[in-house]
Design a protein around this nucleic acid. Structure first.
Lengths: 346, 346
DNA sequence: CGAGGCGTTGATAACGTTACCATGGAGGGG
DNA sequence: CCCCTCCATGGTAACGTTATCAACGCCTCG
């Protein structure tokens, strides 16, 4: 089943079929339709090997990752590989040993293997050192779920995400809010904190902030810290789901009911959010799309300007608030948010 | 940088270089070395597109997954894609909607897209219905982390894995053991239960078993059940890490110290094992290798007998016991396992 | 009415690799 | 000593697609 079969069947030349497939505008509508119909009828799909053989010299892309969150990696890998598969790009994975950052030598070796671009996951994307090495090699880069000034970056609006969730908690009636900050080396942490602070202050809520680093264990510590307050918060927003899961665990250890005594919310909508009881109210970050889009932009860039060192595009995808069972109105005023506000005003 | 450059540089024909690359035995050792040296010197890598263009008509493989555990998927995807990339296979992903099994129509559509084989993750690999559909289409299949009679299956020795861990707990001094069974639809669950039972009975330990389904929430229920006993177990082995994590959570809720009051162990060595406090003692299942091996076998099968419907190979990879901090000698005899045995004998 | 331009299509030659058959030389047996 | 065989290597063609340029007809403008 080749392009030639389609061409013969449709009564045109292979070249015309090729043009139709690639959306070349220089084809008569009538012809285009005939060809498209034939393609569907024959269930034809182009041979990616042949295509990439003639188009790209090589389309090899390095994937450097060191993110310890399996939930993150799962979505990321799915997105990036699906896109790679569709574009016939060859991916070369480099994983930091035991979850750490890869060594300088490992990165050099990756570069030596003849890649034309690199895609980075947090926290590596934010590492100026890693980017420095790659830039020196003249490689275009794409960063997923982060924003950097000198490469392609694809992410959500972290500030608005935290803002939205904070407003949601406030709308539920909470007035004493806790927040757990993520790893300070990542720009998303700063943005999420800013969003939280802005929304909380705008509503005149009482806030309390603890430092974490996106890991489950850091969430345990931070959660204890927040709940140790004389008057503890009635709702805690963690900068990611892993830390939110930790807060739920801490709450249970203290015999606090979630969401009865304490509402908990996260950000990411990782699978941790649903493998937990109660399932987390969180912000969905479309990780798979993020990764796919990043790879798409990277490939386009590589094709457009090979060896030029890469453009600097920032793309922002939409997030969405997902309400599950870990957040509810505070107990004192469980009947309605309005009642909650009435109580608070006293 | 093509095979022709290498050939010219080495003073041989491209054909000879090709033979060297593909390990053809019909090349003189001296020639082989010269060529290999040249390849290294020129840092040459073969163009996968050109190769797969001429060798395989097409190497398209469907990946059907519905496993809700991100930890599992992350390892699986990494393994399967790395291998696909090396073999220039094109993967087409099909994910069950909201974590469920894909519909019949979705599978048919995947088949219609012209794939030559399918790789399955649990729990789909064990679904006779799904396998039925694929078999009817004459597609070879590979199942990861499961064993089925009519397809390629790659996994660990689940029975021995559970056996090893049980013996480890017994060696620590535990004599009252709890076990949480996984989803009964998966053969691994049965095997793990059998391994546990055999080891426990051989040591004359008192056992108590609860039913789970591999999910975190099922682990919560089962954990409560086991600890509700009049004389609760001093150690609990869960059939996977997610459920073990749930047991830790239950223990904390009951103000039991882990591992002081209760030892907990899992199986899989998923990232859940280390994003938890205390980190889990568990059995490492080399998921990435499992997935890679499964794809390798599948591709070989597809090449060897295209359209024949697939062979039936069962490959077993080694597992390893990973000791972390969630399991320790029981409190009554924390000083040494020997002391523990002494106490128990009274 | 003719020349030139534009819109549409087709022919041909690559892309880098391997399959297949041909070639040449060395070695062994008749 | 010759022929046959076997081993090592080379030449040629193909894989399916797209880039490039050429060609054709139609329309418009001078």
């Amino acid at each position: 089943m080749t392009i030639i079969d389609v061409a013969r069947q449709a009564g045109v030349s292979p070249m015309t079929v090729s043009r139709v497939i690639n959306g070349d505008p220089g084809v008569r509508d009538e012809t285009r339709e005939t060809v498209n119909a034939t393609i569907r009828a024959l269930n034809y799909t182009p041979n990616l090997s042949a295509r990439s053989l003639v188009t790209a010299r090589e389309l090899r892309i390095g994937v450097i990752y060191a993110n310890p969150s399996a939930a993150f990696m799962s979505g990321f890998l799915a997105g990036v590989f699906e896109e790679a598969s569709a574009r016939a790009a060859q991916l070369i994975l480099l994983k930091g040993k035991n979850g750490g950052v890869p060594t300088h030598a490992e990165i050099e070796q990756l570069i030596g293997s003849g890649i034309g671009g690199v895609i980075l996951t947090p926290p590596l994307g934010e590492s100026a050192e890693v980017r420095q090495i790659l830039r020196a090699a003249g490689l275009p880069m794409a960063v997923v779920a982060g924003r950097v000034p000198d490469a392609i970056s694809v992410g959500i609006d972290d500030q608005r995400a935290a803002h939205d969730m904070t407003r949601h908690l406030i709308a539920l009636g909470h007035r004493r809010l806790g927040f757990i900050v993520g790893n300070p080396n990542q720009s998303a942490s700063i943005a999420r904190l800013a969003g939280f602070t802005a929304a909380a202050q705008a509503a005149g809520a009482e806030i309390r902030v603890a430092q974490g680093d996106f890991s489950y264990t850091s969430g345990l510590v931070a959660g204890e810290q927040l709940l140790d307050a004389a008057v503890p918060p009635t709702a805690i927003l963690a900068s990611n789901d892993d830390m939110a899961a930790a807060v739920v665990s801490v709450a249970h250890r203290r015999n606090l009911n979630v969401p009865g005594d304490l509402s908990v919310a996260g950000i990411d909508d990782s699978t941790a959010a649903t493998t937990l009881w109660p399932p987390l109210t969180t912000i969905r970050q479309p990780l798979q799309e993020l990764a796919g889009e990043a790879l798409r932009l990277l490939i386009d860039d590589m094709r457009a300007a090979p060896g030029k060192g890469g453009q600097c595009i920032a793309r922002v995808l939409d997030h969405a608030l997902v309400t599950r069972e870990s957040a509810a109105p505070p107990r004192a005023c469980a009947t309605s948010p309005d009642a909650a506000r009435a109580v608070d005003r006293q």
